[in-house]
Design a binder for these strands. Sequence first.
DNA 1: GTCTGATCATTT
DNA 2: AAATGATCAGAC
Length: 224
Amino acid sequence: MLTERPLSIELLMLRAQQLRGYSLGALANELKISLPTESLHGKGAAGQLLELVLGATAGSLAQPDFQELGVELKTIPVNMDGHVLESTYISKVPLHSLTDLTFEGSELWGKLKKVLWIPIITEKDLAITERIIGDAVLWQPSMQEALIIRKDWQELMDMVAMGEIEKITAKIGQVMQIRPKAANAKALTRAVGPEGYSIMTLPRGFYLRSNFTQHILDTALSLL
DNA sequence: GTCTGATCATTT
DNA sequence: AAATGATCAGAC
């Protein structure tokens, strides 16, 4: 089983497609690594396993997983009917030092320009080891999709810049939303508050709504 | 604490 | 059932 960094998108796709049908348990066995037993304690296990086997850069960089290829890797849980089960975290939301921020230069857009989606076929409470790798999909947003993403980003970031982070709920945004992204309620970070003063608040993340990622997967699969 | 990888648990 | 808000694990 190869784990080196792929030299081209074609090689990356080839390798990803070869993983179809593997269970996460079988894959972990080949790599001689162990997986968490309970899903409550293995939330990121699928993504980390796929990063390892596909040769992604580990680490906490604000850059795509395959930086040279401009590709971000995302596992996405779907049930046996192909139904997307969860929203997808994309990137952290900048909450301070917001001058000169543009959509084109944002961390979010850097990751959404090109995404390799790897469906993980599962059901609630199914052991992590029993989950199955599905058909990989390489996605680039269409012009229309990109415009909607940019509109959501601007609406949300306008509120952040205006010091209205505490007014933002997950209901805002057509295909994307802002939600907490923290270890727990005690993890606070600095943000722009009302009147421009600094406040402490929960870290936030950008998430793609599941109906949007469902559309991405459905569109790709309809072309096969 | 700040990031990555996400899913869980409760409300709607 | 779907959506929202909260949380789990690990690297640094």
